[in-house]
Amino acid sequence: MSSEKAVPKKFSIKDYKADSPRWCSGCGDFSVLVGMRKHMMDAQLDPANVVHVSGIGCSGRLPHYFNTYGIHGVHGRAIPIALGVVLARPDLNVFIESGDGDALSIGGNHLIHGINKNFNCVFVLLDNQIYGLTKSQSSPTTQTGFRTPSQPEGTFMDPINPIQVALGLGGSFVASTADWLSGHFLETMNAAAAHPGFSFVHVAQRCPKYNPEAWDYKSSSWYSFLNHENGVAPDQKFGPDATIVDHDPSDRSKAFEYAQRVPRCFGVFYKDDTTTCYAKVLQDKKNKGEQPTDLFAKVRL
């Protein structure tokens, strides 16, 4: 995504604020909201040229709280709606906010094709490992054994690994971060936005209401950071005890290896700026299309 660098800064953080959120206190969505506003300000994006598109869920409410353009769509279908925006208006900066149920369950088909089409946007998967808004049913990422109203004896399937999914589908930018790692989050967003194509950002998101055990944000010894000059630096402030592993994000097979550590691994797994961009192919076709001659030439008698 293009980022406009203007000095002195034209837009301040309040230019990105809209309505007040209605999430539970302590919800990780607040941190994501703040982090994304910060990113937009860092990049000095004109709010009028930004569109946030979301599905349904607690996470789906995010667009309401940015003073930009936004579409709070239907459950699971933010990607096709966002593609419509990108195809129609390649000049806009498009962000997608989706939940673990939204992206990996009902919207799974669109996720496959969004990643494959590699159209230019930042896709943020807010993973609280639970269906938040519908009151705590098991989601595709819920930890095995976790009791929920829909699987009262404990969630019986192994969770889906979102990073493996994204890599397996040929994602051109695949990263993971956490809502409470504010520095890491911001840098990941900046890197994602700078990438031309579908930037898949998995975010560990706290849901103190329904799945407080999912992410132990108070300690950092349970996870590792991927470190590289072409990736995102480890967050030493909020994750002081995390292991640091060097990983070059252009190395796809190593990326798959580290993906096995997910959800206990944050950083940029993979990045390739050269992947074909669907929307761009269609735009180019249109821009260099021959000039129309006569609509009825072929059918006139």
């Binding site: 096709p80 593609l83 419509g84 925006v85």
Partner: peptide, 20 residues
């Protein structure tokens, strides 16, 4: 745009029209 299904095609129409 050949979409992955009809739901998606519909979503893309709405996204485009919203964008003018």
């Amino acid at each position: 745009h050949q979409a992955e299904d009809e739901i998606s095609a519909m979503g893309t129409v709405v996204g485009s029209y919203f964008s003018g």
